[in-house]
């Protein structure tokens, strides 16, 4: 197996082929090779959630995922979660509720919340708290993030 074989997967709905050595993690591939910088690097060790993306619809820490292992799969980043124009309901709720402050954790929260609402369209407050408890936010105290997700759940119905 060559160490730089072509990796092919679906990225935000479109097929991509990109050379990728074995030790490359998905976060580096996205940010550095594919220049999709919406996915953030907060710790590189799985302890902040800023780098969350969806792999086959499942929220995933891109900093701890070998890029080669997404071969043949579907990856959705914050860029893919966002509609071409405007905002999706989760994003609109985050803006309306002031759930962003510095915004660095926000793409990870939006991705995580999007996945939550796809699998559980009417989560309870406790379920929301639990779902986001792998994403760190240092600005908001989470209060407005939780309100925004509750609101997005109502809007999406």
């Amino acid at each position: 197996m060559s160490s730089r074989e072509l990796l092919s997967f679906r990225l935000n709905g479109h097929p991509v082929e990109v050379p990728c050595p074995s030790p490359r993690v998905l976060l580096d591939l996205l940010r550095e090779d594919l220049r999709l910088t919406g996915t953030k690097r907060g710790c590189d060790l799985g302890t902040c959630g800023c780098c969350a993306v969806l792999v086959d619809g499942r929220p995933t820490l891109s900093c701890l995922t070998l890029a080669r292992l997404v071969d043949g799969r579907s990856v959705e980043t914050i860029e893919g979660v966002s509609p071409p124009r405007g905002l999706n309901p989760v994003q609109a709720a985050f803006v309306a509720h002031g759930a962003t402050q510095c915004g660095f954790c926000t793409p990870g929260f939006v991705v995580t919340a999007t996945a939550l609402l796809r699998s559980n369209p009417r989560p309870s407050r406790a379920e929301i708290e639990r779902a986001i408890s792998g994403n760190l936010c240092r600005c908001t105290g989470y209060i407005k993030i939780i309100e925004a997700i509750e609101d997005a759940a109502r809007t999406e119905e």
Binding site: L36, T37, G38, T39, K40, T77, I78, E79, S82, L87, V90, Q91, F94, V95, G98, T100, G103, T106, P107, V110
Partner: peptide, 8 residues
């Protein structure tokens, strides 16, 4: 700048 932050 909220719309820019929520979309990455």
């Amino acid at each position: 700048e909220g719309p820019l932050k929520v979309t990455g």
